[in-house]
């Protein structure tokens, strides 16, 4: 059914696969930390792309699912002592359920109204968690160190977390590809291009949008659990940073929305760039302004993102740059 010989898929998959493999072979802690951040954003950007790129719904609250799922997963692994794998899945499932509930209400809105509502959802979630005592209120939760012990101490646990994150990132790539190359994905593209026409052609837009939202929200929940477990604590301002939602969005735009490879390269490029700017003495204090400048230039002059630009320029590369 699916064409697994499609080179575009393998380019994306191998990129993430080999990237993680190199880190595992070299076994350096600093490299792992850098790679962790990049893979995290690859997963977040690629999952946002399912809703934003494929379906055309801009979600300013993608990080809500990272935050809520992460909080829940962290709670499970640290407070209730569940195994990390199960806790992470729990975080993902909770995110997906919440996305379903939110989606039923909010996905009726179109365009800018939907985008606005997602801003509201992000803030409401942050404000709610800050007041929710089981999650530690405004101060958040700290990891119970016995949770690390189970995996042979903090050092080992960090490597395990990294491997899990790598697998999750690969899973996002595979799922993104499957969605894109499916009948469901074709329906999503139709919704993106013109929702009313899509419905007239028989696409059940309300249901398909909700499904896309749900899939898009599942992965941030997993990633959130792993991230907070790695950090050892979780607090509202860290879990629901509106800024982070926007950064993920910038990554998708930078690489090229709606493409498989776009968010992966976008996340990588943005993270590397930020990493460079933060340590550079000249740009250290200007990295936010520079990121903004880059975003503005992309929006104004390269709306298809980097990968999209190459696809337009070199049509023969289309097969490779899915």
């Amino acid at each position: 059914m699916h064409n697994w010989r499609q080179p575009g898929f393998w380019v994306s998959f191998l990129l993430v696969f080999l990237g993680g493999l190199v880190v595992l072979v070299l076994r350096q802690d600093t490299l792992r930390e850098t790679a962790f951040t990049i893979l995290m954003f690859v997963g977040l950007a690629a999952s946002l792309n399912i809703l934003m790129g494929y379906t055309g719904y801009v979600n300013f609250g993608h990080i809500v699912f990272f935050g809520l799922g992460g909080y829940f997963g962290f709670f499970l692994v640290s407070e209730l002592g569940w195994p990390l794998y199960v806790a992470a899945l729990g975080g993902g499932v909770l995110s997906a359920i919440i996305a379903y509930l939110i989606g039923c209400a909010v996905l009726r809105l179109r365009g800018a109204y939907f985008a606005l509502a997602t801003i509201g959802v992000n803030e409401a979630a942050r404000a709610f968690v800050s007041n929710f005592e089981p999650f530690g209120g405004a101060t958040g939760l700290y990891v119970n160190f016995s949770a690390y012990e189970r995996y042979g101490g903090a050092g080992q646990a960090l490597w395990l977390t990294f491997i899990l994150l790598w697998l999750v990132a690969l899973a996002v790539v595979v799922v993104s590809y499957l969605v894109k190359r499916s009948r469901f994905g074709l329906g999503l593209s139709a919704i993106r291009e013109d929702e009313d026409t899509a419905m007239v052609m028989g696409v059940n837009a309300p249901m398909d949008k909700t499904k896309a939202f749900l899939i898009s929200a599942f992965f941030p929940g997993l990633i959130g659990t792993l991230y907070f477990f790695k950090n050892g604590n979780v607090e509202p301002d860290d879990a629901f940073r509106f800024q982070m939602s926007l950064e993920v969005l910038v990554m998708v735009m930078l690489g090229g929305k709606g493409l498989l490879l776009g968010p992966i390269l976008g996340a990588f490029a943005y993270e590397r760039l930020r990493g460079y700017l933060i340590v550079s003495p000249i740009f250290k204090n200007l990295h936010l302004a520079l990121s903004g400048g880059i975003l503005l230039l992309i929006v104004l002059f390269v709306p298809g993102g980097g990968v999209g630009w190459f696809r337009d320029r070199f049509p023969r590369l289309r097969r490779w740059l899915e």
């Binding site: 926007l246 200007l286 990295h287 936010l288 302004a289 520079l290 990121s291 903004g292 400048g293 503005l296």
Partner: peptide, 10 residues
């Protein structure tokens, strides 16, 4: 949003 980042950054 890009304008926002530039203003806040500067």
């Amino acid at each position: 949003f890009a304008v926002n980042m530039i203003i806040i950054g500067l």
